[in-house]
Simulated assay, not measured.
Amino acid sequence: MTTTRPTAAIERLRTRYYNENAYDPEENPGGLDESEDGQTAGHVTNFPAALTDVGDAAAYVGEAAADVGAAAAAAHGDRLAADAAAGAAAQHRAEAAQSALTAASIVQHVDVTEIVGLPPVVDLRFCDPAGVPAG
């Protein structure tokens, strides 16, 4: 946000500094009605300042809302990226599980003659995950 918070303007608006009562420079400097002595029209003195305060406060609120919108958009983008990463991780897990099934399907047979001291015979067969020998 580039606008500095207009604290004084917000405080004047919040506390009803500008009001419908008679203008009095000592007792009610924010009055919009004519002064008791009829010499000062409060709206002439205070209405332009009140409009400036409203404008400053509105500009600040608008920029703050834009910042919130940008933060929400960034958070949404982060969420989409996280969802995509989770999807990719799930795909990698599925591929790894498929590879593990394939590796587990390698069947090693040892001839019974190994038990009696003869040289072993190893038969490696590569199978698909359903256990059907490949080739």
Rank of each mutant, 00 (worst) to 15 (best):
Ala66Cys: 10
Ala65Tyr: 00
Ala41His: 09
Ala70Trp: 13
Ala74Glu: 10
Gly62Glu: 02
Ala58Thr: 15
Glu63Leu: 05
Ala58Cys: 06
Asp56Gln: 13
Asp53Asn: 03
Ala72Phe: 02
Leu51Ala: 04
His76Pro: 00
Val68Lys: 07
Ala70Asn: 15
Gly42Arg: 03
Tyr60His: 08
Leu51His: 11
Gly38Asn: 08
Leu51Gly: 11
Ala50Tyr: 13
Gly62Ala: 14
Ala59Glu: 05
Asp53Arg: 10
Gln39Val: 13
His76Gly: 01
Ala41Gly: 12
Ala72Leu: 10
Gly55Lys: 15
Ala57Trp: 14
Gly55His: 09
Ala71Glu: 12
Gly55Ala: 13
Glu63Ser: 07
Ala66Asn: 04
Gly69Trp: 10
Ala74Tyr: 01
Thr40Gln: 10
Ala74Asn: 15
Gly38Pro: 02
Gln39Thr: 08
His76Arg: 09
Val44Gly: 03
Asp67Cys: 15
Ala71Tyr: 06
Val61Ala: 13
Ala72Met: 06
Gly42Thr: 09
Pro48Thr: 03
Ala57Val: 00
Ala58Ser: 06
Glu63Gly: 01
Gln39Ser: 12
Phe47Glu: 08
Gly55Trp: 08
Asp53Phe: 10
His76Lys: 08
Thr52Ile: 12
Ala49Tyr: 09
Ala70Gly: 04
Ala66Glu: 13
Ala57Gly: 03
Ala49Thr: 08
Gly42His: 05
His43Lys: 05
Ala41Cys: 06
Gly55Leu: 08
His76Cys: 05
Ala73Gly: 04
His43Trp: 09
Gly42Ile: 03
His76Gln: 08
Ala64Asp: 04
Gln39Tyr: 11
Asn46His: 07
Thr45Arg: 15
Pro48Ile: 14
Ala64Arg: 11
Thr45Asp: 05
Ala65Gly: 00
Asp56Ile: 02
Ala58Met: 07
Gly62Thr: 01
Val61Trp: 05
Ala70Lys: 14
Val54Ala: 06
Ala50His: 02
Ala70Met: 11
Thr52Cys: 14
Val68Arg: 01
Ala64Ile: 02
His43Asp: 09
